[in-house]
């Protein structure tokens, strides 16, 4: 087993730690950094509960070794609020009742964040395909779609 020192920008703060080569990024975030908003729902990169942003792209942190994130920037749900204000996506999920048990929510929000970054005004169809790697067992997705539409609208207004 090899140990490696990694330096990762997590939500704007650079963290330097020694990790085992096999430590999964999701465990690093949850257990080494005690940021437990990122969840684990499967072992096969199927559910998306562990979704984070790495260099701005949504990735499944259960299917990455921590060493692969060395030198990269990572954003988790804990980094979404800015200046005490909820991100429009967080607000949208609240306003549109886009969450129930809350377990898939952080991953869903991180995935949606990249979706809106790439496509600020997605159709319902594009949203549905866009979150197709994130499973929700509670909401039936209807209100998640609405929550993302809410955020898209708000972000476009803010940008205008």
């Amino acid at each position: 087993m090899s140990k490696h020192t990694v330096s990762i920008d997590i939500n704007g703060t650079t963290v330097t730690k020694e990790v085992d080569s096999r430590m999964l990024l999701v465990h690093f975030i949850r257990e080494e950094l005690q940021m437990t908003g990122t969840h684990i729902g499967c072992d096969t990169s199927s559910c998306g509960a562990c979704t984070i942003l790495m260099n701005g792209r949504s990735v499944k942190s259960c299917t990455l070794y921590t060493v692969q994130a060395n030198g990269k920037s990572v954003k988790t749900i804990e980094g979404m609020e800015e200046g005490g204000a909820l991100h429009p996506l967080q607000e949208g999920f609240h306003e549109e009742h886009g969450l129930q048990c809350g377990f898939c929510t952080p991953g869903m929000i991180m995935r949606a964040a990249e979706l809106l970054e790439k496509n600020p005004n997605p159709s319902e169809e594009e949203i549905r395909w866009g979150i197709s790697g994130n499973l929700c067992r509670c909401t039936g997705y209807v209100n998640i779609v609405k929550a993302i539409q809410y955020a898209a609208e708000k972000m476009q207004k803010e940008a205008a």
Binding site: S45, T51, M54, R57, K60, R111, L115, W129, G133, N134
Partner: peptide, 12 residues
């Protein structure tokens, strides 16, 4: 490309 796995997987 659009039919492979899902968007987050396609990022890696």
């Amino acid at each position: 490309a659009k039919m492979i796995a899902d968007p987050s997987v396609r990022n890696m």
